[in-house]
Simulated assay, not measured.
Amino acid sequence: MKIVCIGDSMTYGYRVRRSQVWTRLIEDKYGVKVLNKGINGDSTGGMLSRFYRDVVENRPSDVFIMGGANDLIMEVSLNVIKSNIATMVHQARGNLIKPIIGIQPLTEPDMAKEQWSNIADFYRINNQLLELREWIMEFSNIFDVRIVDFCGELNKRINQDNKYEIYLDGLHFTPRGNEMMLDIISPLLRGI
């Protein structure tokens, strides 16, 4: 089994040692080959443009697709994001690769505003991430696509007391946050 994980900084593991990123933790825990094709700052359009090179040419059994937050920061419409994700899912299936969609976690708006100045309204982004989550769940039901709901699961686990242990800067996760991501994806990996 080989998984390619295509995404943005949440996949790449922004400012976290390679050995502490959730994709690497999957390899270590399950002995599965994982290619991390996350790029800091990437959009779903960027992911789609490199999908053939980064995913199809690597001939994985599965592809994990997660993105959208950077699109929202750049004020790309939800319809464009949905189209890009749907296209990647269909391209994966057309190449006999099983798709998995990751639903991105919410930002921590106050912390993000402190660290990232005024690049975006993170409350708006969270509302749009929730809309995107709803669409992904609907899309996955219609097209029978596996999902990992980091958004919903982490929302249950993150609170005022532990948010500084989980978030580096309101957008990205600490090593502890990456461990939580591994914990959330683990049931899916046990079933593959």
Score class of each variant (00 low, 15 high):
residue 103 I to F: 01
residue 40 N to D: 15
residue 103 I to V: 13
residue 181 M to L: 11
residue 94 G to T: 07
residue 49 S to A: 15
residue 89 V to S: 00
residue 172 H to G: 03
residue 21 V to M: 11
residue 109 P to M: 10
residue 31 G to C: 06
residue 190 R to E: 14
residue 80 V to S: 14
residue 134 E to A: 14
residue 103 I to Y: 07
residue 110 D to I: 11
residue 71 D to C: 11
residue 177 G to F: 00
residue 109 P to H: 09
residue 4 V to T: 09
residue 88 M to F: 08
residue 78 L to Y: 08
residue 177 G to W: 00
residue 56 V to P: 03
residue 3 I to K: 02
residue 60 P to M: 06
residue 51 F to Y: 01
residue 189 L to M: 11
residue 11 T to V: 14
residue 93 R to M: 12
residue 97 I to R: 04
residue 153 E to R: 06
residue 67 G to T: 07
residue 164 Y to I: 02
residue 168 L to N: 07
residue 173 F to S: 03
residue 130 L to E: 15
residue 147 I to A: 10
residue 65 I to R: 10
residue 90 H to N: 13
residue 156 K to F: 01
residue 187 P to G: 02
residue 122 F to R: 01
residue 19 S to F: 08
residue 145 V to P: 05
residue 62 D to C: 04
residue 143 F to T: 11
residue 21 V to Y: 02
residue 173 F to Y: 12
residue 150 F to Y: 15
residue 49 S to G: 11
residue 23 T to H: 12
residue 150 F to E: 04
residue 72 L to M: 15
residue 145 V to G: 03
residue 24 R to M: 13
residue 141 N to G: 14
residue 70 N to A: 11
residue 168 L to W: 12
residue 97 I to T: 00
residue 123 Y to M: 09
residue 52 Y to P: 00
residue 61 S to V: 02
residue 24 R to N: 15
residue 153 E to L: 06
residue 169 D to M: 04
residue 91 Q to Y: 12
residue 114 E to S: 13
residue 120 A to P: 03
residue 78 L to T: 10
residue 117 S to Q: 14
residue 169 D to S: 04
residue 163 K to S: 09
residue 15 R to P: 00
residue 158 I to L: 12
residue 11 T to W: 04
residue 92 A to C: 03
residue 106 L to F: 05
residue 121 D to P: 04
residue 173 F to H: 08
residue 114 E to C: 07
residue 177 G to Y: 01
residue 102 G to Q: 01
residue 89 V to T: 00
residue 59 R to K: 15
residue 86 A to K: 13
residue 141 N to Y: 08
residue 179 E to D: 11
residue 57 E to I: 08
residue 5 C to F: 13
residue 71 D to F: 05
residue 114 E to R: 14
residue 164 Y to Q: 13
